[in-house]
């Protein structure tokens, strides 16, 4: 595949957002997250899988033609795929670029991994998971105090 044919596979968008540097294989999962947001129902979405990347080897990429991204989607990306780059596009140019970092707190984004936690017995209770310390990939449930990894939390994303 030539560089030219790659560009043709991911056409430029006039305005909207590019979610770039998604680890290869996670693009479908990110698409599912986008599908959870009714605000993005009218957005034209392009999904590219398994592109060559100098930084990552292989990567997935999604382009959305929409005026804004729901904050909750960004929080979900921070949980499922931290490190992805969000590029805001205006007039075919990148005007803003942000790398999604692991936050200090996940607010009502995931279920607790502990089945005996009260938040799983009464699912209407909002969950909170606080990072154990800066740089750590371990989080502590604010209710039952069970410590879990970022990956475990990502596997318990709330619908």
């Amino acid at each position: 595949m030539t560089p030219q044919s790659q560009i043709l596979l991911i056409p430029k968008i006039e305005c909207g957002y590019v979610i770039d540097h998604i680890p290869a294989g996670l693009g479908i999962q990110v698409m599912a997250l986008i599908g959870c947001h009714p605000e993005l129902e009218a957005a034209v979405v392009t999904l590219g899988l398994n592109y060559k990347s100098t930084r990552m080897g292989r990567k997935d990429m999604i382009k959305l033609q929409t005026k804004s991204l729901p904050p909750r989607l960004l929080q979900m990306l921070a949980l499922v795929s931290p490190g992805v780059t969000i590029k805001r596009i205006a007039n075919y140019e990148v005007v803003e670029k942000v790398v999604i970092q692991v936050p200090e707190l996940f607010d009502n984004l995931a279920r607790c991994i502990n089945p005996n936690c009260i938040t799983n017995v009464e699912p209407h209770i909002g969950t909170r998971f606080k990072r154990l310390e800066s740089g750590s990939r371990h989080f502590k449930c604010a209710h039952c105090e069970r410590v879990c990894t970022l990956d475990e939390l990502a596997g318990h994303l709330k619908a």
Binding site: C112, N114, N116, C117, I118, T119, V121, E122, I125, C141, A142, H143, C144, E145, R146
Partner: peptide
């Protein structure tokens, strides 16, 4: 006191009264 973990924290969140945790499951 409750067999489920996190119950005392939940009680503290929603109640205006002081809450004493007398044991929440295997937690505290």
């Amino acid at each position: 006191r409750h067999p489920k973990e996190g119950t005392a924290r939940r009680a503290a969140e929603i109640s205006r009264l002081p809450i004493l945790n007398a044991g929440d499951g295997a937690n505290q």
